[in-house]
Amino acid sequence: MRDVAQRAGVGLKTVSRVVNEEPGVKAETAQRVRDAIDQLGFRRNDGARLLRQGRQTGTIGLILEDLADPFYSLLSRAVEDVARTHDCLLFSGSSAEDPSRERELALALCARRVDGLIIVPTATDHSYLASETAIGTPIVAVDRPVPGLAADTVLTANARGVQSGVEHLLRQGHRAIGFLGDSPQIYTAAERLRGYRLAMADAGLQIRDHWIEMAAPDPLTLRLALDRMLGGPEPATAVFCGNNRTSVGVLRELARHPDPPALIGFDDFELADLLSSPVTVVAQDPAGLGRIAAELLFHRLSGNHGTLQRIELPTRLVIRGSGERPPR
């Protein structure tokens, strides 16, 4: 600032007023200061300014499973939009479903004194963040609960959403329905499997072992699982996919089947409505999850210390054709 003041021929206080957009500086003088700032490449230290004013750092952290996943991209954008309305910057990172990477990211963000943290939990114990909440850093869990830590939580009604999709297949006449889910230790995968089992039990149907596959959706796993489900005695006539990545992988595999089964996916995905057989889905609201999680976080940052909240957002069944195929 001294260099700027010297080049513009003004005092430090004048530079400060221009930088902080305060009144009391003539337009000509202010322009001279701005020209000096541009010439010298001066940048205001917002962190130091906020701390001097006794305010927070103006940053929040967001830890997702995978920023490249369209579901999390929409969630992240919604968090960022809310943060902007609060004049706040967002720092984001991906845990890649790795608990040690999640812990490293979370502690790194807290060490940089973010004002609050939104996290899609991966680890089975988050007591390592207890010291952060103890000093007043609010934490909000989104998409999954956060084990070992008291925190506001925003979820999708996963089990009920899958129930609605399976019930729709039952109404089409299907009784042999397969389920392809993600790794069973993931909260959302376990909840969606629970919804599938509930719907089948409510219909009085016995589930065959080869109708269920719970694993990360890599191509070979999906191919082998579909071969088991659709071949041999008591083949599945319909398949429910537990997430959007599984749905896309299954569609690739079913391209080689002349008579594909009925199909419903949990999570919508891009171009699902434009395929030759548009995909029926149980749609979540990732933007809603992100927006509400961010609003809860800023609610806490504003000084509200009321009862912790657990919010579940409903799903909606989007009928497009693939889930309406009759049993073969």
Rank of each mutant, 00 (worst) to 15 (best):
M1F: 08
A5V: 11
R7W: 10
V10L: 05
V15M: 02
V19F: 03
E22Y: 09
V33T: 12
D35M: 02
A36N: 10
D38Y: 04
R43F: 09
G47H: 09
A48S: 08
Q53M: 14
I63M: 01
L64E: 05
P70I: 14
S76P: 07
V79Q: 12
A83T: 11
L89K: 05
S92K: 10
S94C: 10
S94D: 07
R103C: 00
A111E: 12
V114H: 02
V114Y: 01
S131Y: 00
G136R: 02
T137S: 00
D143T: 09
V146G: 01
P147S: 00
R160H: 14
S164L: 12
G165R: 12
E167Y: 06
R171K: 15
R171V: 15
G178P: 06
D182A: 13
A189N: 13
R192G: 10
D202V: 04
D202A: 13
L205H: 11
R208K: 14
R208W: 14
P217S: 06
G231T: 15
P233Y: 01
P235W: 02
V239W: 01
G242P: 07
N243L: 12
L251A: 01
L254M: 01
A255I: 00
H257V: 07
P258S: 07
S276L: 07
P286D: 08
G290S: 11
G290Q: 11
A294V: 13
H299T: 15
H299N: 11
G306R: 11
T307C: 09
L313T: 07
P314L: 11
E324M: 05
